[in-house]
Structures are given as structure tokens and as C-alpha cells.
Amino acid sequence: MKRTFILILGVMAVVAVLFINASEPEAGYGVGDYAADFKLPNTNGKMVSMSDYNSAKGFVIIFTCNTCPYAKAYESRIIDLDKEYADKGFPVIAINPNDVSQQPGDSMDEMKKRANNKGYTFPYLRDDSQEVTKAFGASKTPHVYVLNKESAGKYKVEFIGAIDNSPNDPTDVSETYVEDAINAILAGSTPAITEKRAIGCTIKWKS
């Protein structure tokens, strides 16, 4: 009986490790780190990199998708962020990391439909290899990284996490973490809040 119990515990431990490895990326960037540039395909057929934005002061990198209810709830707010801050030097770049074999609704064809139907004002990129997502350390959709462009090719991570404090209802928002972070950077200050746990669906990782 004792041996059977120990064996069961061993199997459970292995399963737990496999589950964690399958559902969470390796540790990515932290606040104060410098993010590497990337090149990913956009819904318009072009490749997009941060280096394409010569006049940018920074970026709002958002890992999001078509299918997650939380991502859908934040969609209008993401559009509003780009409309508010792109002209101030902080454009949104959205990245869909989900494995399409698990979420067919996140295919490039479906992304094109959604971007067109919703009138996205920002690039919506696919990270098929998931390498960019792993480098950042994103684990949810949506998951936000506010980057400060200190100089050409130097993108400092200033904020990581949630857009605001109301993942479901935009009328209940009382704290705007991403907006506050961008406003602080534009004012030459350090954001008062640099991390807030992202609330969303778990990214669907390739097995």
C-alpha cells in the first residue's frame, strides 16, 4: 500500500511538471531589462519590427488573440490606447501567440478578418514560432509590456502586466496602469506602478 501511494505521488509530480512546462514559458524580461527587436508578419502581409518606427518614443506591446473572452473585453480599450498614444510616440503593437492547432480561431486568416472588422489602427502580428512571446515572458492574453525607446535599438521595459484594474467591464475601471506608465515616461519620470498581474486566458503553447 505504501509503495503504491509513493508511486502515485511520483506520477502526480511528473504530470504536474509536464503541465507547468506546457502552459508556462521560460522566464522572460523583467522591468529594467532591454527587449530585443523582432520581425513578425502583420495581417496586411508585411513584416513588422520596432525598428520600423523611427519616430517612436516607445511601444505598447500587447500579447492578445481573437478567441479569449478577456482579450475581447479589452479590444476596444486597446484600440483607444493606440488612438490616444500613437501620435504621442507610443504606438500599440499587438501580437497573437496562440498555437492554431489548439485555437483555429487565432489563425492568420481569422486575425485578418478581425482586424478588418474591428478597424484596428495598429499592426496585429502572428508569432507562429512563439519565440518572441517566450523572450518577453508573456503568459496570458492580454499581457502588456510598455517599452521606453532610450535610443536606436534600446527598448527598456518600464511596465509589465494588466492594462487596467477591470478585466471585464470598462465602466468599472478606476486604475489605468498602462496609461499611467506612458504618461510618466512622457513626463520624464519612472512609472509609479511597474508591474500588475495580467488577467486573461493562458497562452496556448505548442507541445
Rank of each mutant, 00 (worst) to 15 (best):
G188R: 00
D128W: 08
D172L: 12
Y124K: 06
G153E: 01
Y34A: 09
K57V: 08
L40H: 06
P69R: 09
L9N: 08
Y29T: 01
K196R: 10
Y70R: 09
S207N: 15
A73R: 04
N44T: 03
I8F: 14
D99I: 10
S76W: 00
D172Y: 10
E24A: 13
V178K: 07
A35P: 08
K72E: 11
D80P: 03
T194D: 06
C65M: 02
I62K: 06
F90G: 02
I61G: 06
I95H: 03
I62H: 08
Q130D: 07
P104H: 11
N21E: 15
G200A: 11
Q103N: 14
A73G: 07
I79P: 05
A135H: 13
S166G: 11
V60P: 09
K72F: 09
C65E: 05
T133C: 12
V17C: 15
K134L: 06
G105C: 12
L40Y: 09
Y34L: 11
S189A: 15
G161C: 11
D109G: 12
N66R: 03
N183Y: 00
S107R: 07
S107P: 09
S51R: 05
V157T: 00
I95N: 01
T43Q: 03
G153C: 00
M50N: 04
V11L: 15
D164S: 05
M1Q: 14
A35Y: 11
V157L: 02
Y34D: 09
A16D: 13
D82A: 02
R3Q: 15
D87V: 04
Y70N: 04
V100W: 08
E131G: 03
K154W: 01
E24T: 14
I62L: 10
T64G: 03
P191S: 01
P123V: 05
V11D: 08
K88L: 09
V15H: 13
A187I: 00
N42H: 02
F122H: 10
Y124D: 07
Q102M: 09
K46W: 06
A22P: 11
N148D: 07
C65G: 04
K140I: 06
V17Y: 15
A13R: 10
N116Y: 13
Y29P: 02
N116Q: 14
M1G: 15
P41L: 07
I95L: 04
R77H: 01
S101L: 14
V15K: 13
L7M: 14
V173N: 10
D128V: 13
V48E: 07
E26R: 09
I199E: 12
C201F: 07
Y29L: 13
I93M: 12
A94S: 05
C201S: 05
